[in-house]
Design a protein around this nucleic acid. Structure first.
Lengths: 195, 195, 195, 195
DNA sequence: CATGAATGAGTATTCATTCAT
DNA sequence: GATGAATGAATACTCATTCAT
């Protein structure tokens, strides 16, 4: 009963559908920000809202899946930074840049990420917490070498990275701001010696 | 204190009522954040939605009124900083602290403030722009004395102040973060010399 | 107490205000149609809505007052038609033209006029009924001279005049329609002999 | 007949429900005119407002659906007239009678029909335009045979048919008016010869 | 008599989520 | 598993009319 005699396995539909929805959702969020309705995404993907909910229990779950899909990419970036950057301060700075970029993928994304750090756990919580841990690792190295303030914690830097992503939604934030703020952030956590 | 003990609010004159709504709204926003509906505030204030709309055309107008009520306070603070702080760097830092505190009055407030800096003007726009100008003044002094980076603009600092307020909504942002971030911000814009 | 010693009699304010409101309302209705809110008119007239309601108990009462103000004009027109037009058929046709024009003064006016002919009396009812009576007079003369169908009644012609005014609100009703329809109406009620 | 006797409407399939809503709406409009709110109809139909909006985006869309359901009927009537009436004048008259009856289905219906002829397209526009074209066909035949004035256009007759339907909302329009006005209309567009 | 604040039921519309088919 | 119809609370906003001042 599990194995039918059909030539094409119908079981792949589910996975294919899931991937398709993710692709559409990514495009939709990238274009319209995360404020749009899930119905619109379901329609654009050519599936019913029920199907979307089968795969993703909530909008946050959908976002989480989208972000999880980038896990490998971020992991690779982290490894690349670790490998190629001997200076622990530079490494931390590059990691924070990566986080800022990551959280800027969709307009409005920083908001649920921040919320996920709250008391009520959300599908995004574990993702965020994982990155906080990574940040802590980079930070610890920099602190060990006296390149970062001792009073700073990974969570603070993670939050500030989110905050910088958040400012990008403002029309007032032009290209100058975009390149400037990460520098300000670095100057902020670095020790005087480090400069 | 605001209302008498009668069950039904007496038809008091407009100003009283307006003030009453503002008081209720302030409390409501302070407790639940700014996400609630105007109808809920109207109900809590014991007035019909129409009454609330007569005084405040939109949620942003209500927020603007609430913030305007603090204008004097901020102005006084600015003057106090100017008078009592001879070091231009300290003055700017204190002004930014004031902004951070100001934008942290209600959970969620930084969001409409950021939006007010966008292309579509809102009742909050002029308030924000005024504070950007103030920030520019403090910044210019600090830059003149070589205490602040030359590549920083008032708008960037204003945005970062908003962003720091924004992080406070996260449970992860504890007391340590609250006191730390302004220091990071200051270290970020200050010149190496300044430290 | 009734007679004060002031130089200027304050009593005229009321009447003056009433007239002012009428002038504003006429302009407002002429420009925006009758759908606008009374508050808008009150504001434009520089008075409170209460003042407007003191003078006119409802929107229909305001319309009625506006139409009553034209009573003299219509009466004069009726007299002119009677005096200058010996042919009873021509007279009726001219009277109906006058009615059509009268009901076309404001976009949307035919609707409440029609409603005023319903079972629930409105401030417009007496005005309308008066004109029905006038129509009956013109019609009777025409019928006496065999120029109008015997089966037609004044109320029918009045209604059709309103109906023709009503069509003018449609974009499809161009200049050609405007001049054509009264002719169709006349051909409709006139006897074959009359043509 | 439409619903089972269960207290709560069973989750029937979409088409059934759509039809059910249409049935209720038809009854509602027939009884109260078209002025009622969609919410009221939804409540009467035992569905949530969202369900109604899923099927019909606006009141006009609902009306359009109700009228479309009568398309077949009108088409059949048009064919019957064409087949059974050799006199082109009689045919046009009968077609206009059909239009008057069609537009008199609900109190207030002529208003949105007239509006649909305006510049802003509505769901009713295509229906109306189709009937204008039909009217033009009947009229052309009558004009060809010298039975209708040459200066009349289909749109004028369509508008007058709507206008006559419109008068029926007035209590003053009794049975006599109802039967009389179409005759007046016919006498209006017919040529003298035709009588 | 004027004012304009207050009323509050009413309307259209949205959308995350559930559930019958 | 997929579908998409159904839900229904929620929200923003309007406006004719009343009534305290």
């Amino acid at each position: 009963m599990t194995v039918t005699s059909r030539t094409r396995a119908p079981r792949s539909d589910g996975l294919r559908n899931r991937q398709h929805i993710l692709d559409i959702a990514r495009g939709h969020f990238a274009e319209h920000g995360i404020s749009g309705s899930l119905d619109a995404i379901a329609k654009e993907a050519g599936v019913g809202p029920g199907t979307l909910y089968r795969h993703f229990h909530s909008k946050e779950a959908l976002l989480a899946a989208l972000l999880t899909a980038r896990d490998d990419e971020i992991g690779a970036r982290r490894d690349a930074i670790t490998r190629s950057t001997s200076d622990a301060g530079d490494a931390l700075a590059q990691w924070l840049d990566a986080l800022i970029e990551w959280a800027s993928a969709f307009d409005g994304l920083p908001e649920p990420l921040r919320a996920a750090l709250g008391e009520i756990p959300s599908p995004l919580t574990s993702t965020c917490e994982g990155y906080v841990v990574e940040t802590d690792r980079f930070l610890a190295r920099a602190q060990d070498e006296g390149l970062a303030r001792a009073d700073v914690r990974g969570r603070d830097l993670f939050l500030m990275a989110l905050a910088i992503s958040w400012t990008r939604g403002a029309a007032m934030a032009d290209g100058a701001s975009t390149s400037l703020m990460p520098h300000i952030l670095r100057a902020g956590w670095a020790t005087a010696t480090a400069r």
